[in-house]
Design a binder for these strands. Structure first.
Length: 424
DNA sequence: TCTGGGGTCCTAGGACCC
DNA sequence: TCTGGGGTCCTAGGACCC
């Protein structure tokens, strides 16, 4: 059976989420800012037209915002995550097999749908998602994932396509490849784009004309897969069950200057607890934990310090208490007085399924008790909001907390207004 | 003053083993 | 003077994605 994929991509997703609950924003330039309101990470079409770049630091557009020429929002991932779930739920009505590729993108397996009118079907998907969730989406349909990605980009760009493009006819596929700059091909980043352009490869079509050996030599097997995909040979399968993550990282830049061990400890303990929660959500435990700290790399005035410490724990765990405990041990090993810290993070690896843990005969931890306690904490978190119950080292000063001055309300979920409980 | 966060995959090279 | 070759594992680094 020939393969057929649709890629459904939400248009300007974060900006669209804000608009669903604030229709006054429609037709206006809207940007969403990164954590700490540092830089622009999403833009409405109108903001793009104003020339605001992806990744632009906030201070460069502050004037526009203060003069009400652009509306800016701090990122509200709770809202975006919830809206994403609604979109994916809606999409699951249209095929038994789908792959949630990112917060705003989804591959739909349409193999076996070749006898349906694909253009009509894609339009029906687009309209249904908009009607049920308020989010505008674009769809690209093609025999491989890489071509579906490419079709999706053209669908957005072309006023004729108006958000839906089906690429099954070889002639249309060739035209689409010719119309796509090599920089815009999925899997070609800045380095490869520069490299290829030097060798006169300027479009996706040029790329498909290269020899497999040459591509393997210069771009590894990853490049060869892309080559085949663009030629119409499907090499990337739909991953309908998300594989367990092999590494989980929680890290943040601080909203304010951090120069005491206590503040750094609060932040790092909180990140360790976040990692623990992410582990429990995918029913895994981790054996190895790494803590890292950085000073502000952009500051020419401050003295710089980067350090990390990795600890291999006796038994793989997903307990808040255990992970925070080891995180603090690691932090103590790398902490140095006299620096202004900008960022810290916790990274857990050597992840194993929670039912396949190698136990240690000398283990002193009551794992049964920990796991029951974590179950209770997770329930409380689900009901009352994240971090309402926490290990005491996570603290309460929160001087390191993120800056987020323009956050929209949690329209779709409960507000975090319950007092926090501390565990010891 | 102010510049995000969280992932994946692949390769090369060194250490080590038989 | 002779001083192989194949395999595995680990790590660091580089590329990419959203």
């Amino acid at each position: 059976m020939t393969t057929l994929f649709a890629l459904c991509d939400c248009n300007n997703f974060y900006a669209s989420c804000e608009r669903v609950f604030n229709p006054a924003l429609n037709g206006k330039p809207v940007v969403i800012l990164s954590n700490n309101d540092g830089c622009v990470i999403a833009r409405s079409n109108e903001a793009k037209e104003q020339g605001i770049q992806m990744g632009e630091p906030y201070f460069k557009i502050r004037n526009l915002v203060e003069n009400k020429l652009v509306d800016a929002f701090s990122s509200n991932y709770v809202l975006y995550g919830d809206m994403s779930d609604r979109v994916m739920q809606t999409l699951s009505q249209f095929t038994p097999n789908l792959e949630v590729y990112s917060i705003d993108e989804c591959f739909l397996d349409l193999s076996g749908f070749s006898s349906t009118n694909l253009l009509n079907y894609a339009w029906e998907i687009k309209q249904t998602v908009h009607q049920w969730t308020g989010i505008p989406v674009s769809l690209g349909v093609a025999p491989t994932k890489a071509l579906a990605k490419l079709a999706n980009k053209l669908a957005k760009k072309s006023s004729k396509a108006n958000g839906v493009l089906v690429l099954t006819n070889p002639f249309h596929i060739r035209k689409a490849l010719e119309a796509t700059k090599i920089d815009n091909v999925w899997g070609i980043g800045r380095q490869y784009a520069t490299f290829l352009k030097k060798r006169n490869v300027h479009t996706a079509y040029d790329f498909t004309q290269l020899s497999e050996n040459w591509v393997r030599q210069h771009m590894t097997v990853v490049g060869v897969r892309l080559l085949k995909e663009l030629r119409g040979e499907s090499c990337l399968d739909l991953e309908d069950v998300a594989p367990a993550k092999k590494g989980i990282c929680t890290s943040r830049s601080f909203g304010a200057r951090v120069n005491t061990f206590e503040d750094l400890q609060e932040a790092t303990a909180s990140y360790a607890a976040r990692c623990a929660r992410k582990l429990r959500q995918q029913k895994s435990c981790a054996k190895v934990i790494t803590v890292f700290v950085n000073t502000n790399q952009f500051s020419e005035r401050d003295s710089q310090y980067h350090a990390s410490k990795t600890i291999c724990m006796p038994v793989a765990t997903s307990s808040d208490m255990e992970l925070t405990q080891y995180a603090i041990i690691a932090l103590k090993a790398i902490y140095r007085d006299g620096y202004l810290y900008k960022k810290s993070g916790v990274y857990v690896t050597d992840i194993v399924p929670e039912n396949q843990i190698q136990y240690d005969l000398l283990d002193k931890v009551n794992r049964d008790k920990h796991s029951k306690l974590m179950g209770v904490i997770d329930n409380l978190s689900d009901r009352f909001g994240r971090s309402k119950v926490r290990v005491a080292t996570q603290g309460f000063k929160n001087t390191w907390q993120l800056k987020s001055d323009f956050k929209s309300p949690f329209y779709t979920t409960k507000l975090n207004d319950i007092p926090t409980v501390y565990l010891r």
